[in-house]
Design a protein around this nucleic acid. Structure first.
Lengths: 367, 367
DNA sequence: CTGAAAGCGCTTACAG
DNA sequence: CTGAAAGCGCTTACAG
């Protein structure tokens, strides 16, 4: 005999009673419960999860599906780890486990999700990297499984999502750059159909319009999450008859590549090109000049995702309006050294002429 | 009726035959098998994993346990994502799934692992971040579950592991720095009891000894994975009566913080302090000066971990010697701009005097 | 090659 | 409050 029946046998109880005691169900004598719990502790009993799931229909686990496409894997993107930390902590305090389900590439993603859902390994799903039109959302909706997405999407039926406040970032950054005298402000958007690319670009256009600056498609650059993507766009950014004097990065990691290319050309980030990034990140914070960007709590973002799932798992609140949380995470600007006013920067010396120190212009004397 | 019994009913077959057909078991008529597969495809049948696991004792999943402690979550460490990519791809091609199990903090880690193993959610485990003496290994060994660790550890019984060739890195780096005229070579090691800290330090000492350089405990610094850890040690590194002229980083992310602090002090990374990092990483590769470091295939590392698990799952090869793979992943130096010979660097100008350009010394003319 | 049946280890109405 | 028993949806010897 093994498992719960062994435990029951040793205690001279039925498996039913032991199960009720272990699961904190009502209808068990306090003393009996105590005895069961002690015995379970003593012999190190752990319920078989498969049996539990099969019998109860619940797994006690939430899945977090995310792609480990080479881009993410190769660059220093800590975004997901931070978010996962927040999700897992919050779920754990409600007795739920988090299973992170890595999915390769973009292609087989839908089949993957389908498999995970249909095989019944999780009670709910967290989906990231939402496209503007996203079949994964349809799949989850028709499967009737609780889910929340990290990122908005256009869908006919309401669903729960948590997203960053891209609108605030774009507006604040453009306002700030314009106030600094910039009018040629470039922007980066992701490759593909990611929803936040559309949101960001639209907010950027709105902000320009408010200042009476015409939208110029030549100032829109596509980048992925890679450091090298910044390197690759730098020349084009600075070329042409009327080059950009500032750039707003949806993926701040590109700043590393931009800095590098500027340095190679004898130019100074900040002074010769103002740069603002989306998210505060350690690497970016310690670069010289430090990047102006926006603070976001990854942990809070994860915790909010978890709460959105928990709200749907709760047996009460049948009303979808209450159950389907939709939250935009606040982002607060963190001024750095990378976006000085245009005139201040130019006064430091003629642009694109001499190879002066990138450091001298941005750091206090101390050496 | 649902699940396999519904499928069987529709086909006029028994569930046993359907199960055998679906699972590619012998003893099924070719035509029957074909019929079953088609019907399954048509109605989108997916087997219930809990039932499958309960009946067969196998889950078809491997767990990868890793800690999302704040340090990892906050910094730009892509290491795990890259490794996970390799693990997942390799497992997938053998029909196994990967469940990434994030565990919070260090404290409850053992209990976490115990739970995952005892509840029978995985057929095997991948463990990372091994300590020199690691109770997790004992737990897995006594549980009798196949496992492999990412990192070596001291244990009484043999076990499967995959690790980086820290010895080669330390030796190669020290040789290179000594050849460049350096004798005051600092090193960083991790906090805590992580096994690779001991391995790295020992290899560093050996290498110094070979060159007749005395080991100086004042040149050993502790860092975590944080960018800021480099910033924090920089002053001490450059202070004292006989400061370091070079440093070897076990966590290359610290280079970002070191660069920053040097810049603030008007010093030049490379010229005023030679820096070598452990692992090639995009951020580091695009910094100025680019960091000398060692190439490691994260994907290969992950694939090797997966193979080590697969070798243990195979029914043949009972001999532990063949089943328990122990692999040191090769690392090849990738020379950067951050560790010029001591004299070459000094000839560029008096040390720690003037604020000259960090860029001019390391990049070709182009601006 | 196919079917009938036991069994995996739990949970949960249903009696008592 | 407790027990006996059905059942969750599969797999797998065992017959035939």
């Amino acid at each position: 005999m093994r498992g719960i029946s062994r435990l029951a046998h040793e205690l001279g109880l039925s498996t039913g009673t032991v199960s009720r005691a272990l699961n904190d169900k009502p209808g068990v004598n306090g003393q009996t419960r105590q005895l069961v719990l002690e015995a379970a502790q003593r012999i190190g009993y752990q319920p078989n999860q498969a049996a539990r799931t099969l019998a109860s229909g619940r797994t006690g686990a939430i899945g977090f599906m995310f792609e480990v496409y080479p881009e993410v894997a190769v660059i220093g993107d800590n975004f997901y780890l931070g978010v996962i930390d927040g999700v897992q902590s919050t779920l754990a305090s409600h007795g739920l486990d988090l299973l992170v389900l890595p999915c390769p590439g973009r292609q087989p993603r839908l089949a993957y999700l389908d498999r995970w859902v249909a095989r019944g390994l999780v009670d709910g799903m967290i989906l990231s990297n939402t496209d503007r039109v996203d079949p994964h959302i349809d799949l989850l909706q028709s499967a009737g499984i609780p889910f929340v997405t990290l990122g908005r999407s256009e869908a006919s039926k309401e669903f729960a999502w948590v997203d960053l406040d891209f609108e605030h970032v774009a507006k604040t950054a453009v306002d700030r750059l314009v106030a600094g005298g910039h009018r040629r402000i470039a922007v980066t958007v992701p490759f593909g159909e990611l929803n936040h690319g559309y949101v960001f670009l639209e907010a950027y256009r709105e902000a320009l319009k408010k200042h009476g600056i015409a939208f110029d498609p030549d100032l829109v650059f596509r980048t992925g999450l890679g450091v090298e993507d910044g390197y690759l766009i730098a020349d084009e950014l600075l070329g042409g008859p009327d080059p950009a004097t500032a750039i707003l990065l949806i993926y701040e990691t590109a700043a590393v590549g931009i800095y590098r290319r500027l340095a190679e050309r004898g130019l100074r980030p900040g002074a010769d090109l103002a740069v603002i990034g989306l998210r505060d990140e350690a690497v970016i914070r310690y670069m010289t000049p430090s990047l102006t960007c926006f603070e976001l709590s990854l942990f809070e973002t994860g915790a909010t995702l978890a709460e959105a799932i928990l709200a749907q798992l709760a047996p009460r609140a049948k009303d979808d309006g209450l159950r389907l949380k939709q939250v935009k995470m606040a982002m607060h600007i963190r001024p750095g050294e990378s976006d000085p006013p245009l005139e201040a920067a130019r006064n430091k010396g003629p642009r694109r002429r001499q190879r002066s120190s990138a450091l001298a212009t941005t750091t206090g004397a101390s050496g």
